[in-house]
């Protein structure tokens, strides 16, 4: 019998990846429950179904590396080790939130963990992520910057400006396109000149064409590690297109009716990254007890964090006037 488990990834890392993905899944589910209870206001974009991508990078990155994500960024933030109550508290507008309610769901930021912000204007953060990568090069340090975005983002100018700049300056950065087949409500193929929205553009910037099954956690991890090493070794940027699917609508307000039932069913039943990874771990002869213990542990963590968030006070009104400027205030005249 081949020793499937002790391959390049191994048991320890697989269990970390399992725990990570499960945490992202269960927190997003909790976020959904909290909306239904009207405890989360505003909008929110869940990454349910896309956990293998953020999860793999969370496992592959080192402390000190920089990540940039979009409004669909709860998972990417948690994947860097931010606390669950920091994320849920921010969604609920509580003092325990990562930004004490000043940013909200679409702007999660946790600099201590390398989460350099979540950005809600399509495309901008690709250019900004180049800046942290440029800083690493300028300072001759070896952090890697990673920037996550959607398929729809490949059609805005900033995407193209950022790729060109990253290449000409050989920046230590990994661009990760999460192709979930839809830009908001429109199928991406209806509005894009090429079949693979990111990968088919890679050649224009002298980058390799990389397409990966973003729901296969092991493959995602291998792809992430390879691109991160390349950047860390000073060999320049990568652009990865990871195929995936979101289980829920685009945002809180969207029931996702524009997607064919068959398509949704197929991705939910046959291509769910979590369900498939669990089966894989069993197939690799990992004891089911270990898998379930992790499940219990994460469920417990999410419940505790929810309690902490619900008990956390709402922000003080005076916070409106803080932190516009580095002096902590908001005055604009003497």
């Amino acid at each position: 019998m081949v020793d499937k488990l002790n391959d390049d990834i191994g048991e320890e890392k697989r269990l970390r990846l399992w725990e990570m993905m499960l945490k992202l899944r269960l927190v997003e589910k909790k976020a959904y429950d909290l909306f239904l209870q009207n405890l989360i206001k505003g909008t929110s974009h869940l990454a349910l179904g896309q956990e293998a991508i953020a999860g793999a990078f969370g496992v592959a990155l080192k402390q000190g590396d920089y990540t940039f994500c979009t409004y669909r960024g709860h998972a990417h933030t948690l994947a860097r080790g931010s606390s669950i109550e920091g994320v849920l508290g921010e969604l609920m507008g509580r003092q325990c939130g990562l930004m004490k309610g000043k940013g909200g769901s679409m702007h999660l930021t946790d600099v201590d963990k390398g989460v350099m912000g979540s950005y809600a204007i399509i495309g901008a953060h690709l250019t900004i992520a180049n800046g942290t990568a440029l800083a690493s090069k300028y300072n001759k340090t070896n952090e890697v910057s990673v920037c996550f975005f959607g398929d729809g983002t490949t059609n805005i100018g900033a995407f193209h400006e950022a790729l060109n700049m990253a290449k000409i300056w050989n920046l230590p950065i990994v661009f990760v396109c999460e192709n979930n087949l839809y830009m908001e409500y429109t199928p991406i193929h209806e509005v894009t000149a090429v079949e693979h929205p990111a990968a088919d553009r890679a050649g224009a910037y002298n980058l390799d064409k990389i397409i990966v099954d973003g729901n296969d956690a092991d493959e995602m991890l291998r792809t992430a590690e390879k691109a991160i090493s390349k950047a860390r070794e000073g060999k320049g940027p990568s652009l990865i297109e990871a195929k995936t699917y979101r289980h829920s609508g685009h945002s809180r307000a969207d029931p996702g009716k524009y997607r064919p039932d068959e398509e949704v069913k197929d991705w939910m039943e046959n291509k769910d990254p979590i369900k498939n990874y669990r089966a894989k771990l069993l197939d690799f002869n990992i004891n089911e007890k270990i898998i379930s213990e992790i499940e219990e542990k994460i469920k417990d963590q999410v419940e505790k964090a929810t309690e902490i968030s619900m008990a956390s006070p709402i922000p003080e009104i005076k916070e409106i006037y803080t932190d516009v400027w580095a002096n902590g205030g908001s005055e604009w005249h003497n």
Binding site: Y66, H125, T127, G131, T132, L134, E161
Partner: peptide, 21 residues
Amino acid sequence: DAPISEQAILGAAMGAAMTGL
């Protein structure tokens, strides 16, 4: 010397400034 990419120029400057440059 940067390409004609005003978004990329200011984005790069912003990201670098976020790290303390």
